[in-house]
């Protein structure tokens, strides 16, 4: 088969590696080549594999469809790319276009779904491979796997889990497509259950210290992609009039009746902040454009104020 890969990030790299181990031909890889990367980029892996790299923005151009037909593309595989593919382009492959979505469709469609799932205190989650349609994440489902969410899961670790579970689903799709395209499942999504998440950030990232420690810790974990950039930024609080981000916060189970937001140096020497019900250990904050240990900034007996929601 001839495959066009439209992909970014680790999901794309792992999918590309899996495809390189098959007999199928990768016509091109559509991925970003700009911007500094702390880790290996999709483009660097594709280049080393000797593959053509096309600008991902071209998926919006209906003229691409003719090129794909001329190249005999059978499958478009999309993973973690944020460009909307033009309807004409979606119709170009002889079999279909499929997307690896890091969420259980139809309940989690759109952007940053792993973070939303943690924020919404979900216990289980999933990953979906679906046919692409002009409407985002709305096409029939080919494959889906669900799994439990770890209690300590962060936005990053849940995204990583989706990649490790999702890439084998894409591999399965390719195997079935090569054998018998008609055997690829196509389960229509229940639109009544559809929930779409856009670019919004819950409460604009504002921390509220009068919440329970478990709620605050979960809020922080939803934003946590450390040491990589979080798509939601850092959850925010105010300290002596300055905005600070809380990057890592963990429940201590130590009860408190102290006014929420009060800071103390805890028994283990780690800075702690009072939530409504217990002390919360602060392991890492972000201030002045860098990550720092809380005890380098916060003082015993002072207070963190709620973040601002606007």
């Amino acid at each position: 088969m001839n495959i066009l890969l439209v992909a970014e990030e680790s999901a794309g790299i792992r999918l590309l590696r899996a495809l390189l181990r098959t007999e199928h031909r990768i016509v091109a890889v559509m991925t970003s080549t700009t911007g500094p990367s702390k880790t290996s980029s999709m483009a660097s892996v594709a280049t080393r594999a000797g593959l053509d790299i096309w600008p991902p923005s071209r998926v919006r151009d209906p003229a691409l469809a003719r090129e794909l037909r001329a190249a005999g593309v059978d499958l478009i595989l999309n993973a973690h790319s944020l460009y909307l593919i033009h309807e004409e382009v979606l119709r170009a492959p002889s079999i279909a276009a499929f997307n690896l979505h890091p969420g259980p469709l139809p309940r989690y469609s759109g952007l940053n779904c792993p973070s939303w799932a943690i924020y919404r205190a979900e216990r289980t989650y999933g990953v979906t491979v679906h046919r692409m349609s002009p409407r985002i994440d709305a096409g029939p489902i080919a494959y889906q796997t669900t799994f439990d969410i770890d209690e300590a899961a962060t936005g990053f670790t849940l995204t990583a889990k989706c990649v490790s579970v999702g890439v084998p689903l894409m591999r399965q799709l390719v195997e079935v497509a090569a054998r018998d395209p008609a055997a690829i499942p196509a389960i229509e999504q229940d639109v009544g259950q559809r929930k779409y998440f856009g670019r919004e950030v819950p409460r604009n990232g504002a921390l509220i210290w009068s919440e329970s420690a478990s709620q605050i810790a979960r809020f922080v974990r939803a934003f946590d992609y450390y040491p990589f950039a979080s798509p939601w930024g850092h959850p925010q609080a105010l300290y002596e009039g300055q905005h600070i981000g809380v990057v890592k916060a963990v429940q201590t189970r130590a009860k408190t009746g102290t006014p929420p937001g009060t800071l103390r140096r805890g028994p283990s020497g780690i800075m702690e902040v009072a939530a409504a019900d217990e002390w919360l250990a602060l392991h890492l904050v972000h201030a002045g454009g860098r990550h720092i240990r809380p005890d380098q900034l916060l003082r015993d007996g002072t207070r963190l104020e709620d973040g601002t929601k606007t």
């Binding site: 990030e9 680790s10 790299i13 792992r14 990367s37 702390k38 880790t39 290996s40 980029s41 660097s44 892996v45 080393r48 990053f156 670790t157 990583a160 990649v163 490790s164 040491p227 990589f228």
Partner: peptide, 14 residues
């Protein structure tokens, strides 16, 4: 160079 060689993506790094 693990990054240049495409061997160290964000998940591998973690």
């Amino acid at each position: 160079d693990l990054i240049e060689a495409g061997l160290l993506d964000s998940l591998n790094f973690a």
